[in-house]
């Protein structure tokens, strides 16, 4: 199995640091900082997963859990910053674990495809319960003004019926 063209250590570290910093911005609820990590032409989607027999595709791109651009992500963040975003006020306690990073350079382009696993722990209330939101993200990163930015995210979650009462948290 080929890992694709080699990626230098410096790039690997930069990508890894970037994704870790992004996760921290969300877990620390620095939503405006987080928005700044996306390009203005970003697309951010999460297709619906279905249960099918092996051999049939189990990802449906025709309908998604998120279908966002910079404008709608901005609106979501503005909503979270009001005092009437009830679903996340009081906020969930979240911890994002980003791992299994695979970097695939795109020939002749200044962008990288970065696949990574997301394990998102979410707890609310005082009943000792929590949700795990788990999936693979396929990101596209681009350098803008010397900084890495996300210009595409596609998150495929590993449940056909999501075990969390809403996606009031970002993937």
């Amino acid at each position: 199995m080929s890992a694709g063209p080699a990626v230098d250590l410096e790039t690997r570290l930069a990508v890894s640091d970037f994704l870790v910093a992004e996760a921290a911005a969300l877990d620390e609820r620095r939503f405006e900082d987080w928005l700044g990590l996306f390009t203005d032409d970003v697309t951010y989607v999460a297709p619906v997963r279905v249960t099918r027999r092996s051999g049939s595709p189990d990802v449906v791109d025709e309908i998604t859990y998120f279908d966002e651009d910079k404008q709608s992500l901005t609106l979501r963040v503005k909503r979270l910053l009001t005092d009437v975003a009830w679903a996340e006020d009081p906020p969930s306690m979240t911890r994002r674990f980003v791992s299994n990073i695979r970097i695939i350079p795109i020939p002749d382009e200044e962008e990288l495809t970065v696949k990574n696993n997301l394990l998102l722990f979410r707890s609310r209330g005082d009943e000792g319960t929590y949700d795990l939101i788990v999936g693979e993200r396929e990101d596209r990163l681009r350098e803008e003004g010397g900084e890495l930015r996300i210009c595409r995210r596609r998150a495929v979650l590993d449940q056909a019926a999501l075990g969390t009462k809403n996606l009031g948290v970002f993937l």
Binding site: A46, I63, T64, Y65, F66, D67, E68, S72, L75, R76, R79, A85, W86, A87, E88, L162, T164, N166, L167, G168
Partner: peptide, 14 residues
């Protein structure tokens, strides 16, 4: 639909 309703919808969440 996806942005305002459904599991991530800004209305549905509340």
């Amino acid at each position: 639909y996806v942005q305002t309703f459904g599991v991530s919808g800004m209305f549905d969440q509340d």
